[in-house]
């Protein structure tokens, strides 16, 4: 049933596949960035094409930049820095991975970063360990080193009620994967922090008219708002009259339906349609398949679980992949 694809270097800490599944970027504990490529389309042989020392500290997360902006990855490092590395031509027939941007960490660390493409630009959301969120915009579509800070805010609905400084362990961001003229850019963000009001997942939408980001929905029931969020995942929508977002907290994986049209106050209707339990402990990652019908999750129990809705809309665990040596 399973087919081995790649053997990873010792000390590999994280990995990420590019948009078409032909390239794998992995980050190592010693700060090395390793790239594997399949030279033939759809071949299952992958070879290492680049091994670059990207940073002094270990790489904890790798994320590919959308392919419209080249072959590039963002690396989050253990010391809290964020790096952008890009593969570019260096001399005839020679491709090389080069550092194109370094976002220094000061007191705060970068916890998660995700790229979102709108029709006109590339946006990058960065979540920091102090509970702040920064949205950067790429100024030149050909140069991945020219970023402009577009907005900075905290993951709270009511900014007046903000109090104190949060200390966050992790954050999870997921963009609405849909790109269309009728849609504003939006993403969902949740924190795992010591300040309850930062934690709950909120949907942020860009208000083009006023050039600002607004929280348009909160994905937590009144009693659960302080729950620490481990992961969020926005499902692709190929034509549903509502969006589906998965939110993993200490209580399980909640599936939310999000309305498409805002009410008079600009809020989107939300409905929690399922609470799935299965993973013992923390949920590490959640990924939707291309149709948005199957959710794959993995967590500290080391099991990959697949969830689907039956014809009545009842979500259930469809399969569990238990790893054995």
């Amino acid at each position: 049933m399973e087919k081995p694809l790649v053997m990873l270097d010792k000390g590999t800490n994280c990995s990420s596949w590019n948009y078409c599944g032909q390239r794998l970027a992995t980050g190592l504990l010693d700060g090395t960035l390793v790239i594997f490529d399949s030279l033939e389309p759809d071949s299952s042989t992958f070879t290492c094409t680049s091994r670059t020392k990207a940073h002094g500290a270990s790489i904890t997360k790798v994320i590919w930049v959308p392919p419209e902006y080249g072959d590039a990855v963002a690396c989050i490092c253990a010391d809290g820095t964020l790096l952008l590395w890009e593969e570019v031509e260096e001399g005839p027939q020679l491709l090389k991975w080069k550092l194109c941007k370094l976002f220094e960490s000061n007191a705060t660390q970068v916890l998660d970063v995700q790229f979102g493409i709108s029709l006109t630009s590339l946006k990058m959301v960065v979540a920091y360990s102090d509970g702040h969120v920064k949205v950067y915009e790429l100024l030149d579509p050909l140069l991945l080193n020219k970023w402009q800070l577009q907005a900075e805010f905290q993951n709270v609905i009511d900014s007046v009620a903000m109090c104190g400084k949060a200390s966050c362990l992790s954050a999870s961001i997921s963009w609405n994967p849909q790109i269309s003229e009728s849609h504003h850019s939006s993403f969902v963000l949740g924190f795992n922090s010591d300040l309850p009001q930062f934690n709950s997942s909120k949907v942020w939408e860009f208000d083009e008219a006023h050039q600002r980001w607004l929280p348009v929905a909160e994905l937590a029931l009144p009693g659960d708002k302080g729950d620490q969020v481990y992961a969020v995942a926005w499902a692709p929508n190929i034509g549903r009259p509502y969006e589906v977002i998965a939110v993993a907290t200490c209580k399980g994986i909640a599936l939310w339906h999000l309305g498409l049209n805002a009410d008079t106050e600009g809020r989107l209707s939300v409905e929690k349609v399922a609470l799935l339990s299965g993973h013992e402990g923390e949920v590490w990652q959640m990924e939707w398949d291309m149709s948005g019908m199957t959710l794959a999750t993995t967590g500290s129990d080391g099991v990959v679980r697949l969830w689907q809705s039956n014809l009545n809309g009842v979500w259930h665990e469809q399969a569990a992949l238990v790893s054995t040596s």
């Binding site: 990420s16 596949w17 990652q285 990924e287 993995t298 990959v304 790893s323």
Partner: peptide, 15 residues
């Protein structure tokens, strides 16, 4: 640690 990613169609890749 484990990491997952959907590949083409209904192929799942697990690291």
């Amino acid at each position: 640690r484990l990491s997952i990613s959907w590949s083409k169609g209904n192929c799942l890749r697990v690291s």
